[in-house]
Design a protein around this nucleic acid. Structure first.
Lengths: 216, 216
DNA sequence: GCCTGTATCTTAACGCTGTACAGATAAGCT
DNA sequence: AGCTTATCTGTACAGCGTTAAGATACAGGC
């Protein structure tokens, strides 16, 4: 009767079979509650009900666990950007706008992950394919920028196109940063409110960026 | 001959008379070398040549020391923005452009401070007048935005103006963030280089933002 | 001059952290 | 069955921030 539950309820077992995932979940919860700085590996182990040394068998060290959290974040992030890009249809401007909104919305829906993803030094970029996956989001944005600049997939980015790409990224990332910090809520007093600003000013701003047209 | 040097070389003294400042300097150096995460109060004490408990007499705790670093950073930051604003003359657009350039240049020249200043949770906003001083920079930008929107100093910000303010801040902060992360250096391969992007695209981008004109 | 109070620093200690090491336990394979 | 491997425990160590009690230097009143 002791080993009755084997795969069904694997909680009590010595090997509880799900530690890695539970550690990731615990880490996200801790970051959400106490911020990235409040995260400790021991606390994550505590919540998973294991000894402080147990995580070492699944992650190299504390940064390894955080890197896994970021990795999963980047995967979902890339998916969200891709979906938004498709929603934009054939109009490059619309694709950029949709991506921008998706970017900020991802930050607001996944504050813990987002905080981690864009905090340099917290993650190990050599962890698994974290570098590749994080670069993927950049490429999605770059694709829409290429379309806006009427550049082919193979063409090298002109300095102008690169500047435009950076400006777009900056605006969107800046908005996300401000929104996360609650600075946009401030605007509610001015009549708008956070979602209003996002849905009106972010697209408006993006649409007015000076797109570098290819000189013919 | 022992107490010969009193005020001239106050280094060897038991009270060495300059601990607070030296701790601040040590903190900035540590942040520069190892990042904000690499900072420890004990290391700062070590560099100042005192025991780990000594800083407690000058700063409430580790965050207190970091807050002082941020405070001094915000003072210089505000000064830089103000100077840039004056450089812009009477043209609101020019004032915004100058402020934007000064913003990014401050970040590049004071990476340690900047990292600290805009990392939420690291500093104690209740420390001295940190909240006031940090808000001051925001007000300088707001002033130029008011001018651009043809709003008086007393007028309430319209939602449109607030959105414009946020967009400006976002772009500038985003550029600074990217520049600090070395992501703009990337562009050197595309022909521009960091300073080229800053001096051409940042102003260009800012000038094309949709300024909300007051409806008459 | 001295005596006293205050500011400053040291030493020692507490509880927390990350991580390494050796050993125990469970599961899988032959 | 026995052996191998993966997983987790227990213990330990160095470093961290912070506190408390005591030592030291300076400043002001006599």
């Amino acid at each position: 009767m002791k080993p009755a539950a084997k795969k069904t309820a694997r909680r009590k077992a010595y090997h509880h079979g799900d530690l890695a995932d539970q550690l990731v979940a615990a880490a996200e919860a801790i970051i959400l509650e106490r911020g990235v700085d409040g995260f400790t590996l021991r606390e994550a182990a505590r919540r998973a009900g294991v000894s402080p040394a147990a995580p070492a068998h699944h992650f190299k060290d504390a940064r390894g666990l955080l890197s896994e959290v970021a990795l999963r974040g980047y995967r979902d992030f890339g998916d969200a950007l891709e979906a938004a890009d498709r929603r934009g249809g054939r109009d490059p401007q619309q694709r950029l706008t949709e991506q921008g909104l998706a970017y900020v919305q991802f930050a607001l829906k996944n504050p813990a992950r987002f905080q981690l993803m864009f905090l340099h030094g917290r993650c190990d970029m050599g962890y698994k394919d974290l570098a590749t996956v994080s670069h993927r989001s950049f490429l999605i944005l770059e694709g829409a920028v290429r379309a806006a600049c009427k550049l082919g997939a193979g063409d090298a980015l002109t300095p102008e196109a690169y500047g435009f790409l950076m400006a777009t990224w900056s605006i969107v990332h800046g908005f996300a940063h401000l929104a996360l910090g609650g600075e946009l809520e401030h605007a509610a007093g001015a009549g708008g409110g956070q979602s209003a600003i996002l849905n009106t000013f972010l697209p408006l701003t993006l649409k007015h960026l000076p797109v570098p047209r290819r000189e013919r």
